[in-house]
Design a protein around this nucleic acid. Structure first.
Lengths: 349, 349
DNA sequence: CTGAAAGCGCTTACAG
DNA sequence: CTGAAAGCGCTTACAG
């Protein structure tokens, strides 16, 4: 009998409420209430219990309390990839705030693959997370898994790459940011401004294309479809686009690129062709990626305020968790900030 | 009574084993066994149960099974910051593999703050994670929280920034990598090679300093403490170090920098001083950061194989989780890969 | 102010 | 092959 007790004692590697209760000759209920500062427990009992909890190195089992309370204090964050400064930075914004509000963050990376995105959502549902923050994978066009989340009344917020659904989200103002960038190139005196886009079925890149188009229109510059190259978010497509645009009968003298890797590709191709930026050719990017500050010439770009974006996404989610009745129309638009560096400053040369 | 039932039905937003059991007039035990393909359940029952589970959109409550089984299938990953390509990339390596092995990843970022590091560990303990992968914050010198983890028999693996404890870990071979880089600069014909270090109390940067020192010795070049500047992992310290080194009576003609931001600072300062790299001055970094490929001249550096590092860390943890009896001596050393670019190729000019 | 009891949703040893 | 029962570690409505 003694041996049996010992084995049991050895087997469980953590102290429970009942262990404390037994030690103090009270019930687990009282211990529980004392530790959570229940108003009806006497100050004396509280101090005795807290002392014992500390002495026995008690750490509450959140799994058990989650099961009982129905709240896990965990949120799920679904991202296309962690190998990317953008998402890392958003994660930073989310986790910091989440942690302050008592939430832990379960992360799921889907490698830009639809199947892993679905798997991530299922994992989150299984883990009974209190809410989900997600950004779509590159190829996602089927939203059933997200509708499943809604059906289960799990609060859900999208950021950056958002689906065409009535679900709260945080996005960057790509339209106005791109309008601003294009206008800036015009103001600098560049005459023919081209655009290398990202995949246009993704909302973010479509917005940027539209902003470019609108800026031309606002300046009475005719839009020429020849001046738009459809890229795929890569250095290579920036280079390829530049080659094709330079081969036009009337080549451009500036390019607004949908994001910074593309802009970097433009820069590299111009060097190969011995065209000097910014005096002969203007470049403007979008994202303010890690490297953009350190190229030669340094890249003018729009900062996406990624940390702010993460924070806003969490705030929105938290609000929905707390108030329950979300307004599906909630759409937070983060303003991108222009970062003017060398690549677009013709007048400075 | 009917109304009450309805309210209850509405209130719980997910289907349980008992719901399925009631529907099929069997017990939850049978349903549980059928769904987990227990050998003693008849094929017929299994198919009936599985059909019903699918029809009712049943998703097992992992919280409940965790409480019962004592296994959460969650691992905790503690990182100094997510706003950094290095850790993002390691996370990528960890989560991918973890997901394949049925684990979810709880992430905790401590912003390089000791208190948040402790808080993260406590959160992980509370969440009863099956294991922890961690990298130390910049200022951590007190390891009580990790000893607490060991005391509770929670499998623990460190990566990159590891404490001076007998705990399994995955580290980069900074010594040999730095030896290699220094030797390369010597081979390129640079005569006086300086070093701008990171904080030397952190194991990783200390190793790199030692590798530099050893390479000099192996080539019968006397070590001069004047040629070592103590930096703090930043562009600014790269610039400041370069200024001070150039001001020496006998300035160096090459710098091996402890990491790429520092190397970038070197590059920037050389440009200011109108010293041409690589023909007049060699630069070698460490990390292969995002931007290193895109500077002018591009930076020679050591690739840390970050994804591999994350994968190895998970593999090691998983092995400890499965086999229980870890050998505390387990220390996996990842070989860094030289990435020779322009900044160190004197002979090419 | 504290206790006894029920229950969150699973899993599994014990019966039959 | 399936059921009845106990229990994982909490929390809380109900008593007293």
């Amino acid at each position: 009998m003694l041996i049996l007790t010992k084995i049991i004692t050895l087997k469980k590697n953590s102290v429970t409420l009942s262990d404390i209760a037994r030690e103090l000759h009270m019930t687990a209920a009282t211990v529980s209430r004392a530790l959570s500062d229940h108003p009806e427990i006497s100050a004396k009992t509280k101090s005795i219990v807290k002392e014992a909890a500390q002495r026995l190195d008690y750490k509450p089992n959140r799994i058990a309390s989650s099961l009982r309370s129905g709240k896990t204090n965990v949120i799920g964050v679904l991202i296309p990839t962690a190998e990317n400064a953008f998402f890392g930075s958003v994660i930073h914004g989310i986790t910091n705030l989440a942690s302050k509000h008592g939430y832990s963050v379960l992360i799921h990376e889907c490698d830009e693959l639809f199947e892993l995105e679905v798997k991530g959502i299922q994992t989150f549902i299984g883990a009974r997370v209190d809410g989900i923050i997600a950004s779509l994978s590159r190829n996602t066009v089927d939203y059933d898994h997200f509708l499943d989340v809604k059906r289960r009344n799990i609060p859900l917020v999208f950021f950056d790459r958002v689906p065409d659904l009535d679900i709260p989200s945080v996005v960057i103002d790509g339209f106005n940011g791109s309008f601003w960038a294009t206008q800036h190139l015009i103001d600098q005196g560049y005459k023919r401004i081209a655009h290398i886009s990202g995949p246009l079925f993704i909302n973010t890149f479509n917005d940027r294309f539209k902003g470019y188009e609108a800026a031309l229109k606002a300046n009475n510059i005719p839009f020429e479809s020849d001046l738009v190259f459809n890229g795929n978010i890569s250095i290579e497509s920036g280079m390829e686009g530049t080659r094709q645009l330079l081969a036009l009968a009337q080549p451009p003298d500036a390019i607004f690129a949908a994001e910074d890797f593309t802009a970097l590709g433009v820069l590299k191709q111009l060097k190969i062709n011995n065209i000097k930026a910014p005096d002969q050719f203007g470049i403007f990017g979008f994202c303010n990626d890690m490297f953009s500050e350190h190229t030669t010439p340094s890249l003018s770009t729009m900062d996406q305020q990624t940390v702010l974006m993460g924070q806003e996404a969490f705030k929105l989610l938290n609000q929905i968790i707390e108030n329950g009745n979300e307004k599906t129309s909630d759409k937070i638009v983060v303003k991108p900030l222009p970062v003017i560096r060398e690549s677009s400053l013709k007048t400075m040369q």
